[in-house]
């Protein structure tokens, strides 16, 4: 069983929901990332989502755009990110890691070379924002052959037909983007999330994660009650940015939020 399915199965047994924090790898500097990953796991994260910096992050709001720019000042590449995963794995072989990014760095590395390197580093899944299932067939097959789950986004605009397609081609979990917009936008509407998640569940048995617009413990708890995973991105990256000068404070602030969310979700 893959780390992702093991993790989701164990959480289900305990009646808990996965908490998935997102950070951009190499933000604000490469030396921070691996320690922060370990700290987030200790604070209650079940799965880690690691952003691969890209020069043109079209689906991101200002917070994660700025994180990409900070990481790119240090020339953090896809290969560097895989190096960080490898380093993390030396101490933690259990927590699943999902890479989130854009297709072009993977195209340039080459699909097979990427899948081989990601598998060797210990990556469990990928979310490539600008690679819909219609264009992703070749890469997805290569990833699956290396036991890496291609994870797809579902949106408020996704029709039943698309849900069906995505749930069939994706694995690991599906990630419901709770609002029309970029990352870090306004608060989500919990009621509409409930409806959509139920609609998605009618198409698939794989876990359903929800993200975009979850910035506090209360919202996290509400979303946790109706989904299998809560993804928190901009709220965390904002804390990284605010404490960029002091790695210790980054960890304190980020882990404080994660612990509060974890507590509210488990209550």
């Amino acid at each position: 069983m893959s780390r992702l399915s093991t993790t989701f199965a164990a959480l289900k047994t305990d009646g808990r929901t996965a908490l998935i924090p997102f950070i951009t790898a190499g933000d604000p500097q490469p030396s921070v990332t691996v320690n922060l990953m370990h700290d987030m796991v200790k604070a209650g994260a079940n799965i880690l989502e690691l952003g691969v910096p890209f020069s043109d992050p079209m689906a991101e709001g200002p917070v994660i755009q700025a994180a990409c720019e900070r990481a790119l000042e240090h020339h953090v590449s896809l290969r560097d990110v895989l190096g960080m995963v490898k380093e993390f794995r030396q101490q933690d072989n259990k927590t699943p890691i999902v890479l989130m990014g854009y297709l072009n760095p993977v195209e340039v590395m080459g699909y097979q070379a990427f899948a081989d390197a990601a598998s060797e580093a210990g990556v469990d899944g990928t979310i490539l924002v600008d690679l819909p299932p219609e264009e992703g067939g070749e890469l997805d097959a290569i990833l699956k052959s290396k036991d890496i789950d291609p994870i797809f986004l579902l949106a408020p605009t996704s029709t039943d037909e698309r849900m069906e397609l995505i749930c069939k081609q994706g694995s690991g979990f599906v990630y419901y983007v709770s609002l029309k917009g970029v990352t870090g936008a306004a608060h989500l509407d919990v009621q509409s999330v409930v409806e959509k998640v139920n609609q998605i569940r009618s198409h698939t048995d794989i876990p359903v994660g929800v993200g975009f617009g979850i910035s506090d413990a209360e919202t996290a708890a509400k979303v946790a009650a109706v989904s299998d995973a809560v993804v928190v991105g901009s709220a965390i990256v904002k804390r990284v940015a605010e404490n960029a000068h002091d790695p210790k404070k980054i960890s304190e602030q980020v882990c404080g939020l994660i612990a509060a969310m974890r507590q509210a979700m488990d209550a």
Binding site: L103, F152, L153, S158, R162, K180
Partner: peptide, 20 residues
């Protein structure tokens, strides 16, 4: 019909934009 010119073109956008 999928918008490809040989290997070029296509629809490489986020899911939210696929239906639009």
């Amino acid at each position: 019909d999928r918008g490809h010119f040989g290997i070029y073109g296509g629809k490489f956008v986020a899911e939210t934009l696929m239906e639009p």
